[in-house]
Amino acid sequence: MIESAVDSRWFRRYPPVGGRTAKRLVCLPHAGGTASAFHGWADRFGGGVEVLAARYPGRQERIAEDCITGMGELADAVTEALIPFLDLPVHLFGHSMGASLGYEVALKLEREHGVRPAGLYVSARKAPHRVTPKPTHLGGDEAVIEEVLRLGGTEAQLLDDPDLYDLVMPALRADFELVGTYHARPAHPVSCPVVGYVGDRDEITPADLAAWADVTTASFDLTVFPGGHFYLADQRDALLRDLAARIA
C-alpha cells in the first residue's frame, strides 16, 4: 500500500476531503495545460477519491526540464509514474490532448502491467482511430498562438503577459508538435468503461465522441454540455457532479 508521504514529480496530489483514500482519479491536461487546471477537484468528490493531476515536463515545477514532443514517450513516462499508485482503483480523465494520452496510458496499463483502469473519461477529443492531426506546429509560434486564441484556453491570457510568454511557449510548441504528429490507427480496445464529454459548440462534435465506443469492450456513455472546446470551465460543477456519480 502506498503511503501518503510518497511524492511524485509527475503528479500533483490532491487528497480526499476527510477519510482514507479509496480510489484515485488521474487528470491529464490539454495541450499547454498544467496540473493547476484541476485544483479544487478533489473537494467535489466523496468516497475517498484522491486526485492526481499530471505535471508534464517543461512547465510550473518542472519548468527547467525538456518538454516531451511524442505521444508514445509521454504515455510511457506517465504509465511508469503511475505504477506506485496502482494499489487502489484508478480512473483516468483527459481533456483534449489529455484524452488521447489517457487512452494510451489505459492501453499500456492493461497490456504491459495487467491492470484494468476503473474508467476512462475522454473530453473534447476525437477517438484514436478518427484523429485528424493538424500541422499547426509547422507554422511556428504565430500559428500556435493563433490556434490557442481560437480555442480560447486559459493559456491565451498568459500569452498577453510579456513576462510569462517565454515561460509558456516552450510547452505550447512541444504539445502542439505532439498533437500534430499523433496519427490515426486501428481501434485497439481497452476493457474498461469509457465515458465521453463534449461541448455542444465545439468543433469536436458529439458524433466524434461517439466513435470512442469502438475502443472499449465494456460500456460507453456520452454527455454533452453547453459550451465550446473549454466547456469544462463554465460547466465545471456539472461535469464534476457527473464524474463523481460515475466514480462512486
Results as ranks from 00 to 15, higher is better:
Phe85Cys: 01
His113Thr: 09
Gly98Ile: 07
Phe85Asn: 04
Pro133Gly: 08
Leu88Thr: 12
Ala143Arg: 13
Ala75Ile: 03
Tyr103Asp: 00
Ser123Pro: 00
Ser96Phe: 02
Val115Ile: 15
Ala124Asp: 11
Thr136Asn: 10
Phe93Val: 04
Ala75His: 05
Tyr121Lys: 11
Ala75Val: 11
Glu110Gln: 15
Glu80Ser: 13
His95Arg: 05
Gly102Glu: 07
Glu110Phe: 08
Thr136Pro: 04
Leu82Arg: 02
His95Glu: 01
Gly140Ala: 14
Leu107Phe: 04
Arg130Ser: 13
Gly102Leu: 02
Gly98Gln: 03
His91Gln: 03
Asp76Trp: 05
Arg130Gln: 11
Glu112Thr: 09
Ala81Asn: 14
Ile83Lys: 04
Pro133Gln: 01
Glu142Pro: 05
Thr136Asp: 13
Tyr121Thr: 03
Asp76Ser: 07
Arg116Ile: 09
Ile83Gln: 07
Leu107Ala: 08
Leu120Ser: 11
His137Val: 12
Gly102Ala: 07
Glu110His: 07
Val78Phe: 04
His91Pro: 06
Leu109Gly: 00
Tyr103Phe: 11
Ala99Gly: 12
Ala81Lys: 01
His95Tyr: 00
His137Gly: 12
Ile83Ala: 04
Ser123Leu: 06
Met97Glu: 03
Leu138Thr: 15
Tyr121Val: 03
Gly140Glu: 13
Ala77Leu: 12
Leu120Gln: 05
Arg130Lys: 14
Lys108His: 09
His129Tyr: 08
Val131Cys: 10
Gly94Val: 04
Val115Lys: 07
Ala99Asp: 00
Val78His: 01
Val90Lys: 00
His137Gln: 04
Asp141His: 15
Lys126Ser: 12
Pro128Phe: 10
Lys108Pro: 11
Leu109Ser: 05
Ile83Asn: 03
Glu73Phe: 04
Glu73Asp: 12
His95Asn: 02
Gly139Ile: 09
His95Ala: 05
Leu74Asn: 00
His113Gly: 14
Gly139Trp: 09
Val115His: 15
Pro133Asp: 13
Glu104Ile: 05
Thr136Lys: 14
Pro135Leu: 10
Glu110Pro: 08
Asp87Glu: 10
Val78Gly: 13
Leu109Gln: 00
Gly114Lys: 14
Val122Tyr: 01
His137Asn: 03
Thr136Trp: 15
Leu101Ser: 05
Pro117Tyr: 10
Ile83Asp: 03
Phe93Ser: 06
Leu74Cys: 04
Gly114Val: 12
Leu109Lys: 06
Glu110Asn: 14
Val105Arg: 06
Ala81Ile: 08
Ala99Met: 03
Arg116Gln: 15
Ala81Ser: 13
Gly119Glu: 02
Leu109Phe: 10
Gly119Trp: 00
Val105His: 12
Leu86Met: 03
His137Leu: 07
Leu109Ile: 02
Glu104Asn: 06
Gly114Tyr: 09
Ser96Lys: 05
Asp141Ser: 15
Lys108Met: 12
Lys134Leu: 15
Glu104Gly: 04
Leu74Pro: 06
Gly94Ala: 08
Asp141Gly: 12
Val131Leu: 07
Arg116Ala: 08
Gly119Gln: 06
Gly114Trp: 09
Gly102Phe: 01
His113Phe: 07
Leu109Thr: 14
Ala143Pro: 14
